[in-house]
Amino acid sequence: MNVLNIVFRLLLALVVFPIIGGLIVGLDRKLTARLQGRYGPPILQPFYDVLKLFSKQRIIVNEFQVISVFIYLASSVLSLVLFTFQSDLLMIIFVMSIGAVFLVVGALSVKSAYSQVGAQRELMQMLSYEPLLILIIVGMYLMRGSFNIAVIMSQGRPLIEELPLLFLVMVIVLGIKMRKSPFDLSASEHAHQELVRGLLTDYSGLYLGLIDIAHWFDLMLLLGISTLFFYPHIVLGIIASLFLVILEIVIDNVTARLTVKWMLTYSYGLGLVLAAINIAVVYILR
């Protein structure tokens, strides 16, 4: 790997992907508005929001909040960087979980009922998606014999052919991770308020902006994983990932929020069963 290659990958992970992530969030707001018969904000809206947040006065409740935000951001950035460097997928998920844990820790460190309840729910969201994500990756491993993205990508036919159900599981994972209805329990996007702002209630200004940015990184990582399903047909993969996002937005607009127990039942009942069937089939056929 020469220097140019490294710079290119870093650029991709640190600049290009997050910008695309932001644009996808913008698209999300525009599309949601359209679905509701409104005109909607400009596509660049997330960037305006973040810039504005950066310029606001910094208000915090305690120091651990700030530390948590930075750890969240660092882990999200690192996981995307590791993704572009084609490292171990399971390691990437573990790195991403550092941030998720600290987001919860930061919210729990504030003695506000909204943050606290939001954080507790976020934990339940993590409990719902983490095993699913691990199983998706295990499915890829069973197909390719490696957790390494480089190896996963080195072989011929696209994974989707044999892992279609796991791709459907991705819908659940993405929904929970994007905090879209029916899984927007812990915090919600602007229009669908829940618990004031849920676990983000006591974040403002710079810190909220950083969380938004970290969120773009997370989103891109998940879309990257869903694109992997289609490799070597990258264009198809990108289209499928975009379709996935649009599907999430539609689901978001046509469903109502679930309770925690519903979410767990749903993600475990449906997600785990789908994953289990798919993995079992792959396992038996191999």
Partner: peptide, 21 residues
């Protein structure tokens, strides 16, 4: 291991709760 995260993460958060002002 997902279950493990739940009971440890919330414990960390609870310990660190503070209103600095």
């Amino acid at each position: 291991s997902a279950l493990t995260v739940v009971y440890y993460a919330r414990w960390i958060g609870i310990l660190l709760s503070r209103t600095s002002s």
